[in-house]
């Protein structure tokens, strides 16, 4: 039986060691909020994808990385609330030359810049995955920044279906 207990033994120690502050004890304007919201705003805002890319990358050139980037995402997402996406870059991961950052971007999301992963050579391989939300059918891009500053990008369309009989 591949039930809970069997699986559990294969897992590491788990559970929260830190406790969240109870909701409501943080009022608007506390340093915790300002810091946290500020941090996220540095990454993703409600903006157009063009504005977001300009804000983050300025006018830096991006090379077509389709040959090096394996962007794995279902072509049809029956459910935009949970779409598994992973990015694997065929590139060295040595201190001298490695993939520094990987951004995941969904063009039509209200917050198009979804996530940024910052990697170190300890990873051994430029690979990250996350479950993301897609509001509607959209292109999803992976943008890769290498340690020498080179930017590579690849994209794939994901069709998102909706609820009800028509979905």
């Amino acid at each position: 039986m591949a039930g809970a207990m069997t699986r559990r033994s294969a897992l590491g120690t788990f559970g929260a060691v830190g406790a969240a502050l109870a909701t409501g004890t943080l009022s608007i304007g506390t340093p915790a909020r300002a810091q946290a919201q500020g941090q996220s705003q540095a990454l993703g805002l409600q903006e157009s994808v063009q504005d977001g890319l300009k804000r983050v990358f300025g006018g830096r050139p991006m090379k077509d990385g389709a040959a090096l980037i394996k962007l794995d995402i279902p072509p049809i997402a029956e459910n935009g609330a949970v779409v598994p996406v992973s990015v694997e870059v065929n590139a060295p991961m040595t201190p001298a030359s490695h993939v520094k950052s990987i951004w995941i971007v969904a063009d039509k999301n209200r917050i198009p810049i979804i996530a940024k992963a910052t990697l170190t050579p300890e990873a051994g391989q430029a690979f990250v995955g996350a479950n993301v939300r897609l509001g509607e059918t959209t292109d999803v891009r992976a943008i890769v920044e290498q340690s020498d500053g080179t930017l590579l990008t690849a994209k794939r369309e994901v069709k998102v279906t909706v609820g009800g009989c028509g979905g």
Binding site: E78, K159, T161, V162, G164, G167
Partner: peptide, 9 residues
């Protein structure tokens, strides 16, 4: 069954 209702299988 085994057909699409909209996008749902």
């Amino acid at each position: 069954a085994n057909k699409f209702l909209g996008g749902r299988f």
